[in-house]
């Protein structure tokens, strides 16, 4: 394809992306240097780095950052392991496969706010899990008692919500597994564990990378589940970067500070993702 034709084809998409992604990002950077609230929304006051200093010395910001890291460190590895286990089982069955997949996908496909609310309803005062656990422990259980139990709910929900993604990707990967090495390994008397370690896992390696990349990006911007599970109640002290950012912008109405925080978040996510992006870039330049 010629250069000018290419330009015509990609122009609408690139214009939208520049206009609605590059421009807002530039605006965020500029607004981050200004004191901006709803009272002076038309004439922001330039304050230099003050917003950034304020964010970096804000203990609630670091608390949210810590929680975001815990959330990522717990949900990302756990959901990959669980997803792999379910994918391996799915690979073994032929009947009812579509039925299992449909049910297992539901938590991931459903509207996150709705899914989280449904999840929460089972842990409410009249909820099913509350009842079962109360019977088991023979005492009253309240999942919305304090930060610890709510943290547990948020992490549990994170795994419940994201596991289907790893499951389906790894399941698709298992369908493309070449049969010959596996048969050869079996003939040579390799145990299940050995086949797993030397044939199946190496085949899925690039997928683990792909899943980790996507799920880290998503764990970094968890918002909906915090909004619903904490009932927007700050007493639990459970919040992610995104959620605190939202609070600063809309509850405290500090738009300048919120933008500074967004910019810092963007820098942070890129530091985390540079190795992943580099690998993807190398793969793309190799194949084309």
């Amino acid at each position: 394809m010629k250069r000018d034709q290419f330009t015509l084809f990609v122009a609408p998409s690139v214009i939208i992306m520049v206009l609605l992604m590059v421009l807002p990002l530039a605006t965020a950077i500029i607004l981050g240097f200004h004191r901006l609230t709803f009272t002076n929304i038309n004439n922001p006051e330039f304050v230099g780095l003050q917003n950034y200093i304020e964010v970096l010395t804000d203990s609630r910001f670091w608390n949210a950052m810590g929680f975001t890291l815990i959330y990522t460190a717990v949900t990302v590895p756990l959901h990959i392991v669980l997803g792999l286990a379910v994918a391996l089982l799915l690979d073994q069955v032929k009947y009812l496969r579509g039925f299992y997949i449909a049910g297992a996908l539901l938590p991931f496909i459903v509207t996150p706010v709705v899914g989280t609310l449904m999840f929460r309803l089972t842990f409410e005062r009249g909820g099913l899990y509350t009842y079962l656990l109360s019977e088991l422990l023979d005492s009253r259980v309240n999942f919305f008692l304090d930060g610890t139990t709510v943290t547990f709910l948020v992490l549990f929900h994170g795994v419940w919500y994201i596991t289907p993604f790893a499951m389906i990707v790894l399941f698709a990967g298992l369908q493309t597994l070449p049969k010959d090495p596996l048969e050869a390994a079996k003939v040579d008397g390799a145990t299940w564990l050995q086949r797993m370690r030397h044939v199946i896992l190496p085949h899925l390696r690039s997928l683990f990378l792909f899943i980790a990349l996507i799920s880290i990006m998503d764990a970094y911007r968890v918002f909906d589940s915090i909004f619903v599970l904490t009932k927007q109640n700050p007493i639990y002290g459970v919040e992610t970067i995104m959620y605190y950012n939202y609070e600063v912008a809309l509850s405290f109405q500090r738009l300048g500070k919120a933008n500074a925080m967004s910019v810092l978040t963007v820098i942070g996510i890129f530091v985390v993702l540079i190795p992943f992006l580099y690998i993807t870039y190398r793969q793309q330049t190799e194949t084309t």
Partner: peptide, 15 residues
């Protein structure tokens, strides 16, 4: 794709 929504949405709100 990697950017958090918050980085866009506040400028959209403002603009």
């Amino acid at each position: 794709r990697a950017l958090p929504r918050m980085a866009f949405v506040l400028p959209y709100y403002y603009l």
